[in-house]
């Protein structure tokens, strides 16, 4: 650890020049969506708190959620949720010892991407339908 070459040795894989792969992109995506969802978890407590507080406070938060930027954030949150959910289920299969074939890893990876997009779209359409 105290060799003079310690600080000049390249780190591998060098993330700046390493070609992104579905596997590596989904790996970091699981972490990023987890952090994004943490912010939404804080918002969940705020939402519950204003619901307990008063109709005025709740209406204010609802109007923020209803604004275009609020809607955009909600879609991003729902997409992050489905990404983390399906990515997490993929991880649980790995933890149980299944799906380690390279072909299976790519198939499950694309399934995560497609399922996240479709479920986000479906949620969006359903909420528009519910809003009437």
């Amino acid at each position: 650890m105290n060799s003079p070459t310690r600080h000049t040795r390249p780190l591998s894989p060098n993330i700046q020049i390493y070609r992104p792969q579905l596997t590596s992109v989904l790996s970091i995506a699981n972490r990023v969506t987890g952090i994004v969802l943490s912010a939404f978890a804080v918002f969940l407590v705020i939402w519950l708190s204003v619901a307990a507080a008063s109709p005025q406070a709740f209406a204010t938060v609802q109007s923020v959620m209803g604004s275009w930027i609020g809607q955009l954030l909600m879609i991003a949150g729902v997409f992050s949720f489905f990404m983390h959910l399906s990515g997490g289920i993929r991880h649980l299969f790995w933890d149980a010892g299944y799906g380690f074939q390279l072909r299976t890893i790519y198939a499950s990876g694309w399934a995560v991407v497609i399922a996240s997009l479709l479920l986000t779209g479906a949620t969006w359409v359903l909420s528009i339908y519910m809003a009437g």
Binding site: A51, S54, P55, F58, A59, Q62, V78, F81, L85, G88, I89, T123, L126, S127, I128, M130, A131, G132
Partner: peptide, 19 residues
Amino acid sequence: VPLTIWFLASVVALTGSDR
């Protein structure tokens, strides 16, 4: 897995409703 799906489904069902 079930708890978050339940929550999202509930919130979607509550879209547009007041306090």
